[in-house]
Write a protein that binds this DNA or RNA. Structure first.
Length: 302
RNA sequence: GGUAUCGUGGCCGAGUGGCUAGGCAGAGGUCUGCAAAACCUCGUACAGCGGUUCGACUCCGCUCGAUACCU
């Protein structure tokens, strides 16, 4: 199968599986650059706890959308979609290939298939709904949604405040039910997409996670977290490896407990990532060392 | 050796003579602008052996184990 369209190679998988290394090897072979799809590596202050590529790795291959934000910056998936597409457009002018690597499933989805167009986020509306939730709980959200968007009310997970708040927010801002925006029609992109996923036996993955957390501690994660203390209320810091240390600083956890929890929460996260990726049957799975396998797949399809 | 207390699912932990606490871990799942987020589902375990009882995880005895104190 040949085509004159450029080709985007996705490398996804759970945290700590070895995506960064595989992506760099792959990009070298394809002689192309890398875009990150990792919603926490965007933040320049989070250098240790989010395991971004090292400075020597960054020198080997040009990376995009890593450390391009401050934890104080507002950002969301809609902006990410635009940012990434813009960069891709530029990259494809000089290369037939680009690699996107990351573990944020929703972000990869946005990049590959697009999100429905939704009204602009409005901080005031959001805060108003948050206040309602705080004062009157989920039931209040449920009732509000029932009125604003009965269709969505019927199928949404009613015990998940995050979903309810989002739906109410969109409905309120636009004056139309949230579900009326949800076309869920995949966009066509001006490039071909090859999705690959990396995985390891669960035990081995969990061992790698434990080991990597220990390395982060050696490398000064505790101090990095301490320096983020003034920003703990920002969403970017609602992140494994930081929130546990915040509790340690608060005296709610011992250092040992915090470290154990960071490991546990990272494992929980990896499992959720796998749940997300598993249902995407466009993904071809590889061992993290098997970059040549990925290359074969790419040459066969491009 | 003696005395006392205790022994609940991988871990923590409540409890009652009959009505399967709960939390964590683990597994599976949901997912459209906070996503390393948020949320859902899943475990009949009471140390062992006897006895009392219509019925014991809960009462009694013994055995084993743990802990504390005494000698």
């Amino acid at each position: 199968m040949t085509t004159d369209q450029p080709c985007l190679v996705i490398v996804c998988g759970p945290t700590a599986v070895g995506k960064t290394r595989a992506a760099i090897t792959l990009a070298k072979e394809l002689n192309c650059e890398i875009i990150s799809a990792d919603a926490r590596q965007f933040y320049s202050e989070l250098k240790i706890g989010t395991a971004p590529p090292s400075s020597s790795e960054l020198k080997q291959i040009r990376h995009h959308l890593i450390g391009h934000l401050s934890v104080k910056d507002p950002y969301n998936i809609g902006i990410y979609e635009k940012d990434a597409l813009l960069i891709l457009d530029r990259l494809f002018r000089s290369s037939r290939f680009a690699v996107v690597v990351g573990g944020s499933g929703l972000y990869l989805h946005a990049l590959c298939h697009g999100l429905d167009l939704l009204p602009e986020h409005d901080q005031q509306v959001r805060e108003e709904i948050n206040r309602l939730f705080q004062s009157s709980g989920v039931t209040a959200l449920q009732e509000k949604l029932k009125v604003l968007d009965h269709d969505y009310y019927e199928k949404v997970d009613l015990s998940n405040p995050a979903r309810l708040i989002r739906a109410i927010e969109v409905s309120l801002i636009s004056g139309k039910p949230y579900s009326s925006f949800r076309k869920q029609a995949p966009q066509t992109r001006p490039f071909r997409i090859i999705k690959t996923g990396l995985d390891l036996p669960r035990e081995e993955l969990y061992r790698r996670i434990d080991r990597r957390v220990d390395e982060m501690i050696w490398n000064g994660l505790l101090e990095e977290a301490r320096s983020m203390l003034p920003f703990r209320s920002f969403n970017a810091l609602n992140t494994v490896g930081y929130k546990e240390f915040f509790e340690y600083f608060d005296g709610k956890l011992s250092l040992e407990e915090a470290i154990i929890l960071i490991k546990q929460h990272t494992r929980n996260y990896a499992k959720r990532q796998l749940t997300w990726f598993r249902r995407d049957n466009e993904i071809t799975w590889f061992h993290p060392e098997d970059v040549s396998g990925i290359l074969k797949l790419v040459t066969r399809h491009s």
